[in-house]
């Protein structure tokens, strides 16, 4: 049963290989096409080889200010990543023991993962629009000049945007914490306490090194899912746009390989972050075993 080289093996191996080609084929085709010459189009065959479209992208010709939205997305990604790590790890520690409402919180978290993103985006947008009307009414009642004249909206990346993204990144963070603590050997902590460590020392010198690779994993989810998030972000970023929001706009307007160049750049950044995180996880794990 399940022998390497059997007919069954060959069938499932070919399904697996086809799946991997299906998964990566398209993205490599746009990476190839982004290196075309100036006369290149949206489809094969390749028209020459150059960095022309990357140059165009750099100059920002014919595009909205991609550079700015790119920087905004990186900034927001880092912010969401830090919050995802801190909140998930602390909640993960709390969840090791039952507490009042722990089941309710757990199911809320799972529900947040599977609620349709458009519904969540609408809800958060509504919430902040209602806050807006409250602020405006308040400003008019008390005749506060700065509110009456200048107030636009409370919707923004760091008011409503990051929260909508956290409802997507935090469930992954908590599930990773559950996975690690379900397999956690509690006798290590008892040993540490028997040797006289207090609870902070036990956490930093015993628990933390063991869960460190998982924390890197949570950070990876936090950053990449925020950096590329679109569905939940679509209505809650206020006047500013993140990179995925601009990208969606470009899919209907841009007809040159410049969009492939942009795809190559943003995918490379994702690959760099993933590669760095996975290497870090690998190093941390092997340090632990040694």
């Amino acid at each position: 049963m399940h022998k390497i080289g059997s007919t069954g093996f060959l069938i499932f191996l070919s399904i697996f290989v086809s799946f991997v080609i299906f998964l990566y084929g398209p993205i490599f085709s746009i990476i190839l096409l982004s290196f075309q010459g100036p006369s290149g189009g949206l489809t094969f065959p390749l028209n020459g080889f150059s960095f022309y479209w990357f140059g165009e992208l750099w100059r920002g010709s014919g595009l909205v200010d991609i550079g700015a939205s790119f920087r905004r997305s990186i900034g927001l990604g880092i912010f969401v990543m830090i919050l995802t790590v801190i909140l998930s790890v602390s909640a993960g520690l709390a969840f090791r023991k039952k507490f009042l409402g722990s089941d309710l919180l757990f199911y809320t978290t799972i529900a947040s993962l599977i609620v349709p993103s458009i519904v969540l985006s609408l809800g958060v947008a509504l919430e902040f629009r209602l806050i807006d009307s409250l602020i405006i009414t308040f400003g008019e009642m008390l005749e506060i000049q700065s509110i009456v004249e200048n107030f636009q909206t409370s919707l923004g990346m760091y008011t409503s945007g990051f929260g909508a993204q956290l409802t997507w990144t935090l469930p992954f963070g908590l599930l990773i914490m559950f996975a690690i603590f379900n397999r956690f050997d509690k006798s290590l902590e008892e040993a540490s306490r028997d040797l006289g460590a207090n609870s902070y020392q036990t956490f930093w010198y015993v628990v933390f090194p063991i869960i460190a690779p998982s924390i890197v994993g949570i950070a990876l989810f936090g950053f990449t899912l925020s950096y590329d998030e679109l569905a939940r972000s679509s209505q809650v970023m206020g006047a500013t746009n993140t990179l995925p929001l601009d990208l969606r706009g470009l899919t209907t307007t841009v007809t040159t390989p410049i969009i492939y160049a942009l795809g190559t750049v943003t995918t490379s950044i994702s690959f760099l972050v993933i590669g760095f995180s996975l290497t870090l996880v690998y190093i941390l794990r092997h340090k632990k075993i040694r």
Partner: peptide
């Protein structure tokens, strides 16, 4: 962990 929009494009 990469962009959905780019994966569609």
């Amino acid at each position: 962990w990469t962009s959905n929009v780019i994966r569609m494009v």
